[in-house]
Design a protein around this nucleic acid. Structure first.
Lengths: 228, 228
DNA sequence: CGTTCACTTGATGCCAGTCAACTCACGTGG
DNA sequence: CCACGTGAGTTGACTGGCATCAAGTGAACG
């Protein structure tokens, strides 16, 4: 892991409880406010672990981060994948309630949480960004609970692909940065079922799989029908 | 549904990003700041529907509220049950992304969201309460995703009972305010599986069921072992 | 005293998990 | 350059947990 410093970068301006959620993707501009520590991680490095003291709030600059929880018998649930621009590591208590790891190489900014407690004036912008980040996390969590609790394997994969496509530049083709294992743990499935579902969608001409990690959405309408 | 007005009530004081989450249960003191509209609902009344304009943020004064989402084929997922003191209906966008109904008779306060946009000074307290409410929702959502994605039926019921017990006055006996259907939709199960799991826990002497809605946790250690 | 609704219990089936073998891409060293 | 090892992904056979379908129980209420 490498570290650097980042000062006084910019951010879009959002009212605290604005009615409109901004575009929210693509603008992966550096950071929000004064003094964030920029760090880079290689594949599968730990950013923080469940139970660690939650001293920082993070923002992804590039790459992908997964946050996950473990059951004592090793079963894992990935809460979310965080792409460029996403904020993660927001905690109410003093410890992290999940762990975070890089999925591939990635660069992130860390904001010391103690700085947030006394924010006013220009720094308030960061607080607003973080509030928005929290709201987005909550929205994603609520949608994800519906997926986990009530969708079939095929529906889960379809939702996941549509979601990932929406969050990346190209709407109809995407490179999955994460492994089948990560996808399985995100969707509450096993890697075998993930694999079988991909194959099935391919056979039904809804997607094409030029390689395992490259997906083309060849029939978006059909996928959206699966999505509910 | 009945409505009344509530002015200038009090609330506990919390720093915006304090390290400590306060007791958070039991103190179901009226409300937070100036002008909330107090409303009462009978069993199974709609408080708001998915897609409604999100004009208010709500706080439960007494009773229980469920928030849920529907798939087009009718499958339902209950995001959460909200007990006295809980805040619900926080939205980033302009519409509610889930619907809310009373589980039994209940009383709630509604805060007009437009008032929150321009809050300063004394009103800032309400914003902090709402931020805390959002953080708690997020924590609950993250825990619930692990439950939905990775726990067995028996583990789900055990977790649910321990969670409900923790949130109510008596730690070892509880009256469930919601139906088996509601529990099933919360845990991603069917009512039959919920019922069978209750019976199985009873046969294994972990709980006693003097009646369907009254549960005694007779072997809390065993339940916690199931919880992971 | 019968109807109703919530809940329980039983029989059966299916979707996804488990266990296991196989393919393929990639990297490493002889 | 090729043999070999390794790890990710795929596929197949089988199993099992939970859903589905269906019937039964019991408390509340008119």
């Amino acid at each position: 892991m490498q570290t650097a410093l980042l000062n006084k970068a910019t951010s879009s301006t959002l009212p605290l409880f604005s009615l409109e959620v901004p575009p929210l993707r693509k603008p992966a501009e550096p950071a929000a406010s004064s003094v964030g520590s920029v760090q880079s991680f290689a594949k599968d490095e730990e950013i923080f672990a469940e139970g660690n003291r939650a001293a920082f709030v993070y923002k992804v600059l590039s790459g992908v981060v997964r946050t996950s929880k473990l059951l004592s018998d090793g079963r894992r649930q990935i809460d979310a994948f965080h792409l460029a621009g996403d904020i993660f590591g927001i905690e109410a208590g003093e410890d992290y309630r999940f762990s975070a790891e890089s999925v591939g190489d990635c660069i992130i900014v860390a904001y010391r949480r103690s700085h947030l407690a006394s924010m006013t004036g220009s720094d308030a912008q960061l607080a607003r960004d973080i509030t928005m980040g929290m709201m987005r996390s909550l929205i994603r969590a609520q949608n994800h609970m519906l997926l986990l609790g009530r969708k079939s394997a095929l529906e889960k994969i379809a939702s996941f692909l549509l979601d990932m496509a929406e969050r990346t530049a190209d709407e109809d083709a995407l490179d999955l940065p994460m492994s089948r294992t990560d996808i399985a743990d995100h969707l509450g499935l096993t890697i075998e079922t993930v694999s079988r579902s991909f194959t099935q969608l391919e056979r039904q001409r809804m997607i094409a799989l030029p390689s395992a990690r490259h997906v083309v959405l060849s029939n978006r309408a059909a996928l959206e029908r699966l999505n509910a």
